[in-house]
Nucleic acid binder design. Structure first.
Lengths: 133, 133
DNA sequence: TTACTATATAGTAATGATTCTCATTACTGA
DNA sequence: TCAGTAATGAGAATCATTACTATATAGTAA
């Protein structure tokens, strides 16, 4: 693994932001200080950072993957209206999930992909949702 | 909403199988008895069935969406090796999730997308995974 | 039955995210 | 400095999904 100006810039960009950007968002941002980066290079570097456990990849249904420099255990809430992503610190949920999934199945679970969809506080006017159950 | 031979055939196909097929799998299958169906028609009808709560759409990271005729509350385990999908009955997990996500956030959660990735019993030789924690 | 109208379909083009290819560039260790 | 090789840029390719459009057909009313 070699160093390059591009890989440093891309890494600094993702590590320095907390808005859960997509690859395209990182690309736009990096492009401002390095106009010739290619989107492929952004993807390649993000993939590498994910592989090295330096950032997380968040798969959101029907949307581009997002990337997250916060490595500590947490899950995500995605607002269906404004697209914003919030973090939920939740070691407790993980424990419950591991218990429920592993114990009852022969599966060796390596990763749990969990995303909650809904409306964030400011977008939510009609107060619906499963909390009311 | 009108009836057509295609919509009936597509519905019967998904409702009659338990292998969590993708749209392409349904298409291949339906095409055997109706060689001229178009993939677009399959997508349209699956979308309609999802909208009517007759089937579920399962979003799996980096894979095509899968469809599930089992409506009762459950989650999915996807084998990273063979691609198989297993069901996990789990009202208990849902209760824990709702509690953890709703109570601590201003979010109105409409849907929780949860997929556990790992190795199914027959693909799992080296016995790794988070169960060991 | 027939005619009418709106919906569904087939076929295909378009889209969007991501990956791949390959010629070129530029680190890095000798 | 130089060779070897990994990383890059540019753009083509891929894959799932959606959009478009002309045609076919279901439901309905006469």
């Amino acid at each position: 693994m070699r160093n390059s100006k591009q890989s440093e810039t891309i890494k600094a960009n993702v590590m320095g932001r907390y808005d859960h950007p997509t690859a395209a968002m990182v690309y736009e941002s990096v492009r401002r200080e390095m106009p010739n980066v290619s989107l492929g290079t952004v993807y390649r570097n993000l993939d590498r950072l994910v592989a090295n456990d330096e950032i997380l990849r968040i798969s959101v249904p029907n949307q581009a993957d997002r990337f997250d420099a916060t490595i500590s255990e947490h899950y995500h809430l995605v607002c269906e209206k404004c697209g914003g992503v919030s973090d939920v610190e939740s070691a407790r949920v993980t424990r419950a999930l591991k218990r429920a999934f592993c114990e009852s199945s022969g599966f060796a679970i390596s990763e749990i992909q969990l995303v909650a969809m809904g409306r964030c506080e400011s977008c939510n006017s009609n107060k619906g949702g499963i909390c009311q159950n």
